Measured scan of single mutants.
Amino acid sequence: TEKQERAIEYIRRLGYSEEEARRILKKANGNPDLAKEIARRIG
């Protein structure tokens, strides 16, 4: 989804690889607090 793409872009800007960014997002899917934090940061 567009939100996922924005989140991946944001995480990659922090210096993670695409693969790492996707792994972090997968974790965020099972972790509402982390997901909220990422969403808050990407606006």
Results as ranks from 00 to 15, higher is better:
33 D>Y: 08
23 R>K: 11
20 E>R: 05
39 A>I: 05
28 A>L: 04
18 E>M: 09
30 G>V: 02
13 R>F: 10
25 L>K: 00
4 Q>G: 08
42 I>D: 12
32 P>K: 03
17 S>R: 04
16 Y>F: 15
16 Y>A: 02
29 N>K: 13
39 A>W: 02
32 P>W: 07
33 D>Q: 11
8 I>Q: 02
18 E>S: 07
35 A>S: 03
27 K>A: 15
13 R>K: 14
7 A>Y: 05
37 E>D: 09
35 A>C: 06
18 E>I: 10
36 K>Y: 11
31 N>E: 07
8 I>A: 03
9 E>S: 07
32 P>I: 11
15 G>E: 01
39 A>M: 03
32 P>H: 05
22 R>T: 06
18 E>C: 10
38 I>G: 01
8 I>N: 02
31 N>T: 03
36 K>E: 07
6 R>V: 08
12 R>A: 05
30 G>M: 10
1 T>C: 08
33 D>A: 10
22 R>M: 08
37 E>N: 08
30 G>Y: 12
4 Q>E: 12
38 I>M: 10
40 R>V: 10
29 N>H: 13
18 E>L: 13
23 R>S: 12
16 Y>C: 05
1 T>K: 13
25 L>G: 00
34 L>C: 08
38 I>W: 05
6 R>P: 06
15 G>N: 02
40 R>I: 13
17 S>K: 04
30 G>C: 06
33 D>H: 09
3 K>W: 08
32 P>Y: 07
16 Y>P: 00
6 R>D: 14
23 R>V: 10
26 K>Y: 11
34 L>H: 06
12 R>I: 15
33 D>F: 08
24 I>F: 10
23 R>T: 11
26 K>L: 13
40 R>L: 14
43 G>W: 15
34 L>R: 09
5 E>P: 03
40 R>Q: 12
8 I>Y: 08
1 T>P: 10
19 E>P: 07
14 L>N: 01
37 E>S: 11
25 L>D: 00
42 I>M: 15
12 R>Q: 12
37 E>R: 15
21 A>G: 03
14 L>C: 07
33 D>P: 03
11 I>D: 00
36 K>R: 11
4 Q>D: 08
11 I>W: 04
41 R>A: 13
6 R>F: 08
8 I>E: 03
10 Y>G: 03
43 G>Y: 15
20 E>D: 09
11 I>M: 12
6 R>Y: 08
22 R>D: 04
18 E>W: 08
28 A>R: 01
16 Y>G: 00
43 G>V: 15
8 I>F: 07
2 E>Q: 12
43 G>K: 15
34 L>M: 09
18 E>Y: 11
26 K>S: 10
41 R>E: 10
32 P>N: 04
38 I>H: 04
15 G>L: 02
7 A>Q: 02
4 Q>I: 15
34 L>I: 10
20 E>N: 06
15 G>F: 01
4 Q>K: 08
5 E>W: 10
35 A>R: 02
2 E>I: 12
16 Y>E: 00
5 E>A: 12
35 A>F: 03
26 K>F: 12
18 E>V: 08
42 I>T: 12
12 R>G: 03
31 N>I: 06
32 P>E: 07
11 I>S: 00
24 I>R: 00
12 R>N: 03
15 G>A: 01
35 A>H: 02
1 T>V: 12
41 R>G: 11
17 S>H: 03
25 L>M: 13
27 K>W: 15
42 I>G: 15
32 P>S: 08
41 R>D: 08
8 I>V: 10
23 R>F: 12
12 R>H: 04
18 E>D: 11
24 I>C: 05
36 K>H: 04
25 L>Q: 00
43 G>D: 12
28 A>N: 02
32 P>L: 09
41 R>I: 11
43 G>Q: 15
2 E>H: 08
1 T>L: 14
18 E>G: 05
19 E>D: 12
32 P>F: 08
14 L>Q: 04
13 R>W: 13
12 R>D: 00
30 G>A: 04
28 A>K: 01
39 A>K: 02
29 N>W: 07
33 D>S: 10
14 L>A: 03
10 Y>K: 03
21 A>C: 04
34 L>T: 06
33 D>N: 09
7 A>R: 02
19 E>Q: 12
13 R>P: 00
20 E>T: 08
28 A>D: 00
12 R>F: 04
12 R>M: 15
21 A>D: 00
16 Y>V: 03
15 G>Q: 01
8 I>H: 03
9 E>T: 06
19 E>M: 11
4 Q>R: 11
20 E>M: 11
29 N>Y: 08
9 E>H: 07
39 A>E: 02
34 L>A: 07
39 A>G: 03
30 G>P: 01
26 K>Q: 12
10 Y>A: 08
2 E>R: 11
27 K>P: 01
25 L>P: 00
14 L>K: 03
5 E>R: 15
11 I>A: 01
3 K>H: 12
9 E>F: 06
18 E>H: 07
16 Y>Q: 01
21 A>R: 00
20 E>W: 09
2 E>M: 07
2 E>K: 12
42 I>A: 14
27 K>E: 13
39 A>P: 01
8 I>P: 01
5 E>T: 09
5 E>I: 12
24 I>Y: 04
33 D>K: 11
11 I>V: 02
17 S>I: 02
39 A>F: 02
29 N>T: 04
15 G>C: 05
41 R>V: 09
41 R>M: 12
27 K>C: 15
27 K>G: 07
32 P>T: 09
28 A>F: 04
19 E>I: 10
28 A>G: 03
10 Y>R: 03
20 E>G: 06
7 A>K: 02
9 E>N: 08
35 A>K: 02
5 E>G: 07
25 L>I: 05
30 G>H: 06
16 Y>T: 01
36 K>F: 10
10 Y>C: 06
29 N>S: 08
16 Y>R: 02
15 G>R: 01
6 R>W: 09
34 L>S: 04
37 E>C: 11
23 R>H: 12
43 G>A: 15
36 K>M: 15
5 E>L: 14
21 A>H: 00
21 A>F: 01
4 Q>A: 13
10 Y>M: 06
